[in-house]
Computed example of a mutant assay.
Amino acid sequence: MTSPASPGDPAGAAVCAWHPDRATGLRCTRCGRPACPECLREASVGHHCVDCVAEARSTVRSKRTLVGAELSQKLIATPALIALNVLAYVVTAIQAGSIANNERSPLFAEFFLWPAGVWAGEWWRLLTSGFLHFGFAHLGLNMIALYVLGRDLEPAFGKVRFLAVYLVSLLGGGVAVYLFGGVNTPVAGASGAVYGLMGALLVAVLRLKLNPGSALGVIGLNLVLSFTLPGISLLGHLGGLVVGAAVAAGLIYAPAAHRDRYQVAAVAGAVVLLVVMAFVRTGQLG
């Protein structure tokens, strides 16, 4: 700590700038104001007062990720999405009185993706179906994949951008089923959104000039399973994959100048395009 005040100050005359009732012989080495020991913090040179410490912290630029998000390793969006999916499953299982046949519940019937229902005006099914699952195994596989991808992508994209990729990919998978699938084919699950995260991971790996082998291997294996296993919505998977990769590219490759505006425009543009395609399909069915 520094010595007291300027030579002209009489001994014991200075009082703490934050506690006027406390006499002090110490001063902040940055601003020079008198300060008691409680109001000083050790610095690389001398001691700084609490105001100078706060000012210094406010001028330090926080670290940013490749999409311009503030760097944070704390997961919030990923566990929240997992919780919503688990909650939806628990409610449907209770309503149906069955863990394996939860699709019999009224909630499931109201919100799963039924293209004929979407054509009749039940547009919410394009999104809500992504939070429903056929049985516990279906839920478990998707939630494990969501966690594995989310623990890497959420810190890289930030919570808001990560949610944008997830939800727009989910919508993209639903619209793909509506555009190209059978009108009476029931579809549910978070797979479209999960595949969107796979597409985002691939774009991020390529942007960072990392070896894309692992990402391509994961995507390839899942696509093979989508083609070979029965009861899987290939259209939903492909739709989510393409839309997720496109949205991620819009976020990652947005110009640094006015980056936030370009990113908002990329996400909004993808949503508008998907909605327009759905309206066109509705007109064709009509």
Rank of each mutant, 00 (worst) to 15 (best):
residue 1 M to R: 13
residue 10 P to H: 12
residue 16 C to M: 03
residue 16 C to A: 03
residue 18 W to P: 00
residue 19 H to S: 01
residue 22 R to Q: 13
residue 27 R to W: 00
residue 28 C to N: 01
residue 32 G to E: 07
residue 33 R to V: 11
residue 41 R to S: 09
residue 42 E to H: 12
residue 45 V to S: 13
residue 47 H to R: 14
residue 47 H to Q: 13
residue 49 C to P: 06
residue 50 V to H: 13
residue 51 D to E: 12
residue 56 A to H: 11
residue 67 V to W: 03
residue 67 V to F: 01
residue 67 V to S: 02
residue 72 S to R: 12
residue 72 S to H: 09
residue 78 T to M: 08
residue 78 T to G: 05
residue 82 I to T: 05
residue 85 N to M: 12
residue 85 N to V: 01
residue 87 L to P: 00
residue 91 V to T: 01
residue 91 V to K: 07
residue 94 I to Y: 13
residue 104 R to F: 02
residue 111 F to D: 02
residue 111 F to I: 06
residue 119 W to H: 13
residue 120 A to C: 04
residue 121 G to M: 09
residue 122 E to A: 15
residue 122 E to C: 05
residue 131 F to V: 15
residue 141 L to K: 12
residue 150 G to T: 03
residue 153 L to H: 05
residue 160 V to E: 14
residue 160 V to R: 15
residue 160 V to Y: 11
residue 161 R to A: 14
residue 166 Y to V: 04
residue 171 L to E: 00
residue 175 V to W: 06
residue 177 V to F: 09
residue 182 G to I: 01
residue 193 A to C: 02
residue 204 A to K: 14
residue 210 L to N: 11
residue 211 N to P: 07
residue 212 P to D: 04
residue 219 I to Q: 07
residue 220 G to F: 10
residue 222 N to T: 00
residue 226 S to L: 15
residue 228 T to G: 05
residue 231 G to N: 12
residue 231 G to A: 12
residue 237 H to F: 01
residue 237 H to S: 14
residue 244 G to N: 01
residue 250 G to K: 11
residue 252 I to D: 00
residue 260 D to A: 13
residue 264 V to M: 14
residue 265 A to N: 06
residue 266 A to L: 07
residue 266 A to T: 01
residue 267 V to K: 10
residue 269 G to D: 10
residue 269 G to V: 08
residue 276 V to D: 07
residue 279 F to R: 15
residue 280 V to H: 08
